[in-house]
Simulated assay, not measured.
Amino acid sequence: SSVFGDNAAPRGGRARSLYWSSDGRSLFDTGEKQGRTPLVRVDAQSGKVTEVTHGDQAVLDFSVNSNNAIVTLVSTPVEVGDLFTVSADGTQTRITDFNQKLWSQLNLTSPEEINYTSFDGKHIQGWIQKPPDFDPHKKYPLILNIHGGPHAAYGWVFDHEFQWMAAKGYVVLYPNPRGSTSYGQDFGNIIQYHYPGDDYRDLMAGVDELLKRGYIDEKKLGVTGGSGGGVLTDWTITHTDRFAAAVSQRDISNWASWWYTADFTLFQPNWFKAPPFEDPQDYNNRSSITFVKNIHTPVLFVLGQSDYRTPPDSGGEQLFRALKYLKRPTAMVVFPRESHELSRSGEPWHRIERLDHIVGWFDKWMMGVPHPEYDINPPTAANASSPD
């Protein structure tokens, strides 16, 4: 797999292929390792894994012919994807530069890798995407972007969303909290039966780490994420008021409701030890709707009308209704015809509009930019009267 987090390119029907070496003694594949996706060779007898490619990049796809000649499709934070040949010693030689003309018109910058220690000593890796012409002596607004999964990962790969948010003047922090892939099985599975929970504390430790660096405005903190990242966005704003704005995408706010309605069945006790009709308290304890009264952060919900993986009525719609009842600042955008794949392979105009809404919400609450489409228009005396 690769380290795309939530934002892989539109996915077709073809799965990635595996290739045998010409002598039949090893198998070529790709693997995740600490935010990187190298091409690897697996010894067919011993199972030993040897990295073929190296560096801060992601091998998205590859091909091997009968002579063991290798061509890879490589992505980095400043390159969507280009073809490289790979020699026996792992040396890569570029053979395409598809976006050279476009890139010459843009100011893309590589993120900074960050490694920090969480509350219990766990080491957390993440990345900081800074605005072009970043000045460490200035104060910038921060967007904490949380990946979904929860068993997925961010890493050294192109992500247009982070580059675009940075171009709008935001610093973007995108970490891999516990539960993320590419750090070993124990790190990934530690959240079993405890999700959400300590992964939230990993995320807050990352925000604290950036605040120590002095270039983040602590009054202009935003948080967003989709799917599992939406779960953690909801959880975050029910457990802290430090964020000035939040955008929750394709979320789950009520685990019991989701258990009954999602296309992702839980017939095996993977995330919960029992179904909600046998252990309702566990579901309540881990559902953000239980703590909705704690939400004071202005929150936008971005949902897909045809999302059966995280059905809207088990996620943002419940929190939206509750927050409206509580008269808390909130809005909801529902995209027609869109499934859980909205951010990845939704209709192109919807994908653009989604990004506009995410940054528009942050602009309104963190930058003071007027966005009347999110304002509540109080009724006038004429239309507030009761019908005859």
Rank of each mutant, 00 (worst) to 15 (best):
E278K: 09
G197Y: 10
G225T: 08
L203P: 03
I358H: 01
V59P: 08
E112S: 14
D251H: 01
L173C: 04
Y195P: 00
R178Y: 08
G81F: 05
K48F: 02
G24R: 06
V74H: 07
L18Q: 08
M332G: 00
Q125K: 15
M204T: 07
G316W: 04
L83Y: 15
R213P: 00
H239V: 03
P77F: 06
W259S: 00
V52L: 14
A8G: 14
R242Y: 00
K33T: 13
K219H: 15
T117P: 01
S17M: 09
A205T: 10
F362Q: 07
R36V: 03
I114F: 09
Y195K: 03
S46N: 09
K101E: 15
D208Y: 02
Y140L: 06
G31V: 01
G316Y: 03
T261G: 00
R25S: 14
N107D: 12
F28G: 05
N189V: 00
A331Q: 13
N7M: 12
T181I: 10
M332Q: 14
S46H: 02
N107A: 14
G346R: 12
K212A: 05
P77G: 05
V247M: 03
V74C: 05
P132W: 02
G206L: 09
Q45I: 11
G214C: 05
Y195G: 02
R354S: 07
V52K: 15
S21Q: 05
F62G: 08
G360N: 06
I146T: 07
L108F: 11
E209M: 07
I143M: 05
D241I: 00
F267W: 12
E112N: 13
N254G: 01
E353A: 15
P276I: 03
M366W: 01
V171M: 02
K273C: 00
A9N: 10
P136C: 05
F335G: 09
W258R: 11
Y283P: 04
P280S: 07
V64M: 08
H147M: 11
